[in-house]
Structures are given as C-alpha cells and as structure tokens.
Design a protein around this nucleic acid. Sequence first.
DNA 1: ATATAATGTTAGGCCACGGAACAAATTGGC
DNA 2: GCCAATTTGTTCCGTGGCCTAACATTATAT
Lengths: 406, 406
Amino acid sequence: MRKINTRSFVRATRGTPREVNRQILLNLVREHEPISRADLARRMEIAPGMVTSMVFELLAEGALYEGATIDAPRGRRPQMLFVRTRGRLAISIDVRFRRTYVMLGDFSGRAIALEAFDTLDDPTAFIAELKRRAESLLAHHSDAGHCEGVGVVVPGMVDSVTGRVLNSPHLGWRNVDLGSELAAAIGLPTYVENAPIACALAQMWLGKRDGTELTDFVYVNVSDGVGTGVVVNGQVLRGRRNTAGEFGHVPLNPEGPDCHCGGRGCLEAYVSDLATIVRYLGEPFSPKTARAVVQASGLTIADVIARARARDQRAVNALEETARHLGAGLSVIINTLSPSLICVGGEIAEAWDMLEPIIRRIIAARALTDNAAVTPVIPEMATSEARLRGATVLVAAPLFAAPSIA
Amino acid sequence: MRKINTRSFVRATRGTPREVNRQILLNLVREHEPISRADLARRMEIAPGMVTSMVFELLAEGALYEGATIDAPRGRRPQMLFVRTRGRLAISIDVRFRRTYVMLGDFSGRAIALEAFDTLDDPTAFIAELKRRAESLLAHHSDAGHCEGVGVVVPGMVDSVTGRVLNSPHLGWRNVDLGSELAAAIGLPTYVENAPIACALAQMWLGKRDGTELTDFVYVNVSDGVGTGVVVNGQVLRGRRNTAGEFGHVPLNPEGPDCHCGGRGCLEAYVSDLATIVRYLGEPFSPKTARAVVQASGLTIADVIARARARDQRAVNALEETARHLGAGLSVIINTLSPSLICVGGEIAEAWDMLEPIIRRIIAARALTDNAAVTPVIPEMATSEARLRGATVLVAAPLFAAPSIA
DNA sequence: ATATAATGTTAGGCCACGGAACAAATTGGC
DNA sequence: GCCAATTTGTTCCGTGGCCTAACATTATAT
C-alpha cells in the first residue's frame, strides 16, 4: 500500500496499460527464456492475441528474437522467444582509486573489450581520456552492435538522477558533474552510480538464482572502506539526499577505534581491508596512519588470507576478529531491514570458508527472530567484475524496469 | 527504477488508467481541498472533460462532495470539491498491555465515541469482548454513518497481510489469528498492524504538514520498549517476514546493559521508559528486574519528567542520559536510512524541550553528511491518540492508496 | 450590451484490451 | 491414409476510456 505523492506523480494515459504489459512480458522472457507465446499468455493470464501483438512490436524493435521451434508432446510446436542481448552494447566504466577500467560489453554482461589506465585526479582531463577511449573502443568494434549508453561506477556518494558525483574522498572529488559532461563528450546516455549500489543492481539483474526473485537484499562491499547497497521491493534505497543505505558506519562500539567518518568504532573501522591488515601487523587502527602503515608493510588483504591459509596464527586471528565484527554489522542490517539475502563482496570473500562459521554464529546469537537467524549470507568473489557488470546494468536495466505510474 | 517481480506481478487491464487517474484525483482533492475541477485539470495536466467524468463517478460513490461556489476574480465561479470524511466510519482498536481502547470515529480521525476496558489475556475471550463492544458502538451510533472496517493496533510483530499476531511479548500472544477471527465475528473488513507502524501511517496520512509531502521518514515510539516504523517511498518497510524497521535493538554498546532481546546495550535498554526510570532510581538496568523495580517504586516516566522540571538533579541526569543514547540511536537511523524526518512519540516527548538540544548535538556530531546533520526530529505528544488515529488510517488509507501495478 | 475570461459539459475519434473464432502444425487412432 | 484431438499462434471485432475540440455557463470589465 503506497501513498501517492501529490507533488510528483505520473498520470496514466491511454498507452499506459500497453507499456506496463509490455514490460511484464519482456521480463517474463528475460527470466524464463526460452519461452513460447502460449506460455506467456498463460503466465500473464492474458488473451493469446495480445501476446502476438506485443511480441510483434518487441521483435520489430529488436528487444526480442525468435529461436527455433522445439518438440512438444502434442500439437503445434512452439516457437521460442529470447531477449536479445547480443549486439546491444554498453560502455562500462569502473573508476577506482588507482586504476580505471573501461569495458565494451553487451547486455548480458559479456565483455567484448576491456582496457585499464591510471585514474587521473583532474576531472576534466579524466573525462577527456574517457571520451578518447570510449570512442576508440566503439570505432574498433563498430561491427559488434549498437552502443546504447555509458555506465559509470564511482566510489563515493552520487546523485544518480543528475549523474553528479557529490563527494568521493578516494578520488578527491566534490560536486563533479561527471554524468552531464561525459554524456556531452561521448554523445550517449550516461548513468553514474555509487559502487556498492551498482554491485547490488548487478546481483539483482544478472545474478543467477534458482527460481527465487531477489527483490529485497543488501550488498555489502568490503575493500579499503565498507559500502552497502540496499534493495527494497526491487528498488535501490536512496533516502533524502542519496546517502541512504550506508551501513558502513554503524557504530559497533563507542570505545572502538577512530574512523574516517569522525565517529568511533564504526563497522568500517573494524572490518575494512585496511583495518584487517593493520590488525595483522599488530598495530592499533587509526584512520590517519592506516594507509601509510599498510603501504609501508607492502601487504595486501590477499597476502593476509594466504598467510592464514598457511597456518600463520596471527593472520588467522586477524581475520577471525574481522569476521566477528562483520557478523555484528550484518546482524544490525538483518535486524533493521530483514533482507532475504545479504551478499558480501570484496577480496575478503576469498576467505569465506574461514569467515562464514564465525559470522553465522554471531548472527544467530544476535538475531531478534528465528527467521532473521537463518538469513542467507553469500560471498561474491571477483568484485571488480561485479562493478563492471553493475555499470552495464545501469544502461540495460532501465529498458526492463517497471514503468513508474501514480 | 524498480525491477518487476516476475513471480508476483499485477497486469494492467483496460480499466487501469482510469483506476490510476481516479486515485490521483482523489488524493489531489484530499491534499488541496477545497479545490475546483478546473484546478484539478490543471494540476493533472488532463483534459477538463475527464475531470468531469471522474468527479461524477466519485460523487456518485460518495467519495467526494460538492461544496459552495466561491468568488473568483473573473469568469464563472468554481464549484469546490471535498473528500467526504463525515459519515464514513471506522472502529479503531488500540490494544495495550493493561487497557484496550475502542473508538468509533470517522475518516478524518475525529472521535464519535471512545471506551476502554482491561485487556484480557485469553485471545478468544478478548475477541468476544471486542465483538460485543464494536456491535454496541455501531448500534448506538447507527445514525452517524456507515462503518467501513475495523483497524487494530497491537504491540508486537504482526503479519499485516493475514492479520495474524506473530509474537507479542506484552500480550503473551504467539500466532494469534486476530484479523480473521475479528473479521468473522464483526463481519467487517479488519486490518491489524504493529503500533509504531500504525503511528507512522497516521503521521503520513493525517499529519498536517505545510505543503511538504511526507513519504520518507521514521517514527520512533518510546514507551516500555522502543519500536520504530519506517516509511520509504510512501510505503511501510516490512522486509522478508514483517520484522523490518526494528531499530529498537540496534546495539549502541557491546558492554552495555542486557536487553529483553537477549543482546546487550540495545537502544531500547538505554532509552525505554523502564530504563530511564530505573536509571533515575540509581539501579542498574536488567530486563528481568526492571519492571518489578519500577512497579515497586510506583514511579512513571511522567513523574520523572515532573521531578526534572522541579529541578531534581537526579531526574535531570537520568533524562539527559536517555537523550544522549536516543541521539546515538537516531544517528544510526539517519545515517542508514537518510529519512527526511524523524518523529519521536511516547510520553518522553513531553520533555522534548529538555531532550532536544542534547539529541541535536549528538546527531550533528555523528552525521556523515551536512544534510544528515540537519535532519528534522520532531516530538509527537499524545501517543495514545496517534495509535487510535493509526487504527483509523488502516481502514481509510487503502481507499486512497496507489493501485499496485506491474 | 458586448467583449473577455474563466469554469464546466458534451461529442466523437481512436487506441488497445478482451473475448472468440479461426488458421496452423503436430500426434495418435482406426 | 484420413480424421479427430490437441496445442500454438493469428485475425477480427466489440467496447471502454483517453484525448481533442467545440460548446454551454457564468462571472467581470468596458
């Protein structure tokens, strides 16, 4: 039951039912392909004639394509329908602290070309470089299909409506109008999004689940910081000013270590990769010194995990303490949002076999209900790919999303 | 941008645009009454003929009524339209630990009759008593209008779809099918909801704001426990199993006092009325003894507030510590959900002038962004009325809510 | 009295849903 | 080998409701 916002509503027009039903049909094909017209009519409880008409339009637009007919136990053999992902391209950009990745891929998330370069501090020069690389990619793969847009994933706070980067400490950017400027430079629709939200979107749209829809879940990304993307009712939680869903700074202990955010004992100050490495080194965590200490040691979180696997007890202890605090943080998420799933991304996911038992134990101990206690928590390896896939989804998903009405 | 759930979607039919536009029109009248047809046509950017047609239907159904024509600077004088709230009744039931309140009121929240009786432990006897009182109220006020349903507000966890009380520690109920049984007994549509959510709904639908829509906010109810109702995008946050939005048990300190929930240092263990009174008494908080200690002292939170106003330093200290912890809890809500408003209900709201500066200071110190730091926090006095109003809204709001499509 | 301006009503075109009949393609039985 | 049965997919038409446009109504200004 939703209240209509009388300051910003969308009125229904004569074409609205068509629009709605087309999107439902499109999503049914996406989810159940290969699927026949007759099956669509049954699932939608709609007259078969309307399916014919809508499919005709979608075929003409190139949104769907017809595959082979398949054998049936009796009667006319059905002609299977598929969503067309080949030849529908997106340029996906993953901006990170040191390196920026630029991918040309199709709507299924498949990569056609991928390149990387050092991230430039100056936004103007950076945008010019992105323009150069995007145009080069498109020129070299002009036979691969038609590019429908640019998706950019950025660490930090983003206004996804305007495409403006509000604040990115990692990049040292404030109020950079990345979206409009890239769109003007490349001449394609451009979408900018915060990294954990993009990863959540990738999970929702491209994640392969066994029949269960994923419309209420949380993506937790653990890297140098801890970011979260929250999906409620199939929508990203944004809040008043694009700052919602930030569970990285829930306080776990008022006496805990200082955090970048100015608080104390935040989840991030306990479980970020920096915090884990510093803990392994036996030093106290401080936001001012952590990065320098880690760089001086030359260690990465992958090294700590490797040493833990090699029975280095200090590494095991450091990771186990990370797991305990992560469990505490996830408990807060579970008890406040009651998601149907939590997905944990980042390099630390590689150590999931070591972390999971501890995390599960803490969650079980702190859960308010029996149901909450068994909330699935799954790792996602290879986060960098997730981000690029998320960038692709930024371009592709709007074509499949529910029309916003009322 | 919302993903369509392909397991449970609502297809658009030929009548869908009408349904959508009717609800928009109805809400525009609700929000802007008195309002003319011409003004509605302008606001909806719709042809005046359609307004005539829709208003005709709504008048015939009794959803709207025509008032007087008013003066206009030039031209034909507009005929003003209003939402009909008089004569459209609801039975509102507020079930509390000791007493249960039964109100007959109209859709504006205005009370026609109100009575109270001691809450009965046995669900069957309790439902029989509610049936008796509801029928008596309707019989004695049969001239007041037509009763369209029963709204019940319950402390504890509720499955609002089935009307089942899943778990209410205060009442000692588990899996009580209150909704179906009351509906069968009284013979009216019955809606059951958790108390803080109902208060949030009352704020959203009946709260008088100056032109700003309230579609993203949090209601925090402080009484013997701490409950929260979260509204995102005009919808109540429910999560997977009706346990979402529970910020009463966010941990503030792992070394803190034990809590009813089995955890330690929860918000509730610091700021509930029981916690505040126990703190005033100078005793350590324990979930096992708190209620007995408070009852033995004979004190209520109102007494503590009165003593603080009479310059009792211990009372002042107890309340100020409550304010500090409440500020910490609200900071977690602000940083994770980024609501446009937080509303604090409960008897403690009577002491708002003492609490607010402390709460604001803590929020400002812990906010992740400048925007978050200035999130409005307002008190709501007279929570018992809010709950009854919430119960009324449970019946009335579905008639005004957005149709769920796609 | 006439022009102007605003509110509200009536009439008809047309798009798309919705039901039903029909065409197409395949299997199985006699 | 023909016909019935079955399933898929298409075509056709009635009708509800949007949408444009003309029109009626009622006020003020000159």
